[in-house]
Write a protein that binds this DNA or RNA. Structure first.
Length: 506
RNA sequence: GCGCCCCUAGCUCAACGGUGGAGCACCGGAUCCUUAAUCCGGAGGUUGGGUGGUUCGAGUCCCCCGGGGCGCACCA
């Protein structure tokens, strides 16, 4: 059975990665053999790296502060010089240099230093000093291993570039690539800022169903799933809108949800099947309050995530400083096209205008959709600075209230920046009969095979019959907003764990 | 869905169709103020997978499969 040419697993033909992991495992066992626990249960840190830089800025070289601190973080660099070593410790706040002298280090700490690898979590206790070259450091007397990293980290200088691995192993991306960390810091600061703003405006943050019997509130294809207990088909929500408005009916006059939405559609640089939107509803308001709130939220997000109101977009510099112009869609189109269009225009004429501007009309498009497409394909891409575009055709706004003096137009706005839509809002349609009629129209389209037509939602219509007060509603695309603020051009770069095909089993 | 491109050591990258290399990381040694430390030595490879094809010869050219990226279409 034994074949002499077959290498045994222990020999040097084992894969290199296994060898590297084996090396680190060996060091861990050696420490354990000396009675050092490689996985202690806790460490009482007293300072963060960045605190020390702030508190001890501008010290002369070779200063001893007398301040004793205990730091904890990952070892991200080691420079050994015989009896003197330097290491870089990185924690959530930043990095600081550790200075380790064999003369002042205890036996145990010296053993830890010998066995420490890049990526290990350590605790470092000692005095805050500056080195002879003037770098703020901690003169370590006790070095404690907090957790051994068995797998080697990516290149300390080049980091991790392969996008596949960056997305699949985001934790490695985050610890190896400072820019990745920067993007997500912006994301979560911006979301926190928006949440604080909503709270200061007395909005209540609520949770509505993600698993819904019928996905509504937007025009999109849902993901489908099955509930075993009830033996029913369910959809993952495409928007929280209908449930949030039902809460306004129920007396929550100001509600919002930071909602993960799911749309079973194309994946691209700007589309993720799973994305986040902030939706908010404010009773007694109309379009004006919706625009005020949208502007305030984006401004708060920018101020508290990046600390400025200018962002780069390609070669352009975009200024987000409020107030933003609020302009009528039909006026903007008139200016851009050189003629005034309206949903009551002859459909043949509108098709011709579309064709003239490079918009190919589909046969099922009504006049409102034609006007909307002129906006979407011709006007929108040219709106680089923030603009609140007001007044959209009712035909493409099935949940919005129609304008007082024009039944074919809705009191709806979109926020446009860098040629993209960032937010959408309207005065909510609260007349039950009118909502029911609009549902009938779209349900008929659905019955004809339009998979994206909005389904009729009787529970929602019944809710409106109890009375929805005049209400302003908005939705802000969080992922795209973060892309704008962080100046990245792939939506996957602002989503921690984007949807990918499963890794191969091997 | 369609088109184009990418996949080489743990990481970052080289290699005209002609013996698969380097830097970092790793291992051994030297080094008491370094900071992408340095110096000496060493080890590390099924070139994403294919007992598919062409060729005297394939990491390289062709085909199939897998994964990813970008562009177009749908969508926010």
């Amino acid at each position: 059975m034994t074949n002499e040419t077959d290498p045994s697993p222990d020999e040097a033909t084992a894969p290199t990665l296994d060898a590297l992991i084996g090396e680190r495992r060996k060091k861990r066992e050696e420490l354990a053999a000396r009675g050092i626990d490689p996985y202690p249960s806790r460490y009482d840190r007293t300072a963060l790296a960045d605190d020390l830089h702030v508190r001890h800025a501008g010290l002369e070289p070779d200063t001893r502060t007398g301040e004793q601190v205990k730091l904890a973080g990952r070892v991200t660099a080691v420079r050994r010089h015989g009896k003197l070593s330097f290491a870089t410790l990185t924690d959530s706040s930043g990095s600081i240099q550790l200075l380790l002298q064999s003369s002042t280090l205890g036996d145990e700490a010296a053993a830890v230093l010998d066995a420490v690898d890049l990526g290990d979590w350590v605790g470092a206790a000692g005095e805050v000093i500056t080195s002879r070259r003037g770098e703020l450091s901690v003169d370590v007397t006790v070095l404690t291993l907090l957790s051994k990293a068995l797998r080697p980290l990516p290149d300390k200088w080049h980091g991790l570039t392969e996008t596949d691995t960056r997305y699949r192993q985001r934790e490695v991306d985050l610890l190896a690539n400072p820019d990745s960390r920067r993007v997500f810091d912006i994301r979560f600061k911006a979301i926190a800022a928006m949440r604080r703003h909503m709270e200061s405006e007395h909005f209540v943050e609520v949770e509505t169903p993600i698993l819904q019997p019928q996905a509504g509130g937007a025009i999109a294809r849902p993901f489908l799933t099955h509930a075993n207990a009830l033996d029913i088909e369910l959809s993952l929500r495409i928007a929280p809108e209908l449930y949030l408005k039902r809460l306004v009916v129920g007396g929550y006059e100001r509600v919002f949800e930071i909602a993960r939405n799911f749309r079973n559609e194309g994946v691209s640089t700007r589309h993720s099947p799973e994305f986040t939107a902030l939706e908010a509803y404010r009773a007694f308001g109309d379009l004006t309050e919706g625009m005020d709130l949208t502007e305030a939220l984006v401004v708060a997000a920018a101020r508290e995530s990046i600390g400025r109101f200018t962002v780069a977009f390609g070669d352009e510099e975009i200024d987000l400083t409020p107030p933003w112009p609020r302009l009528q869609l039909l006026d903007l189109l008139e200016e851009r096209l050189g003629l005034r269009v309206h949903p009551t225009d002859d459909i043949g004429h509108l098709r011709e205008v579309c064709a003239r501007h490079g918009v190919t009309p589909l046969p099922e498009w009504g006049p409102g959709k034609l006007v909307f497409e002129l906006y979407d394909q011709v006007l929108l891409p040219e709106l680089l600075s923030p603009v609140l575009v007001c007044g959209f055709p009712v035909e493409v706004s099935p949940l919005a209230r129609h304008t007082a003096d024009d039944p074919t137009m809705a009191d709806r706005f979109e926020l446009c920046i860098v040629g993209r839509e960032f937010a959408n809002g309207y005065s909510e349609l609260n007349i039950p009969e009118e909502q029911a009629e609009r549902f009938e129209v779209s349900a008929a389209a659905k019955a004809r095979g339009d998979v994206e037509a909005h389904p009729a939602d009787q529970a929602f219509v019944r809710s409106l019959q109890y009375g929805l007060p005049p209400t302003a509603g908005i939705g802000i695309g969080i992922d795209r907003l973060i892309m704008l603020l962080a100046e990245v051009d792939a939506i996957r770069d602002v989503i921690l764990f984007p949807m990918l095909r499963p890794e191969a089993a091997d």
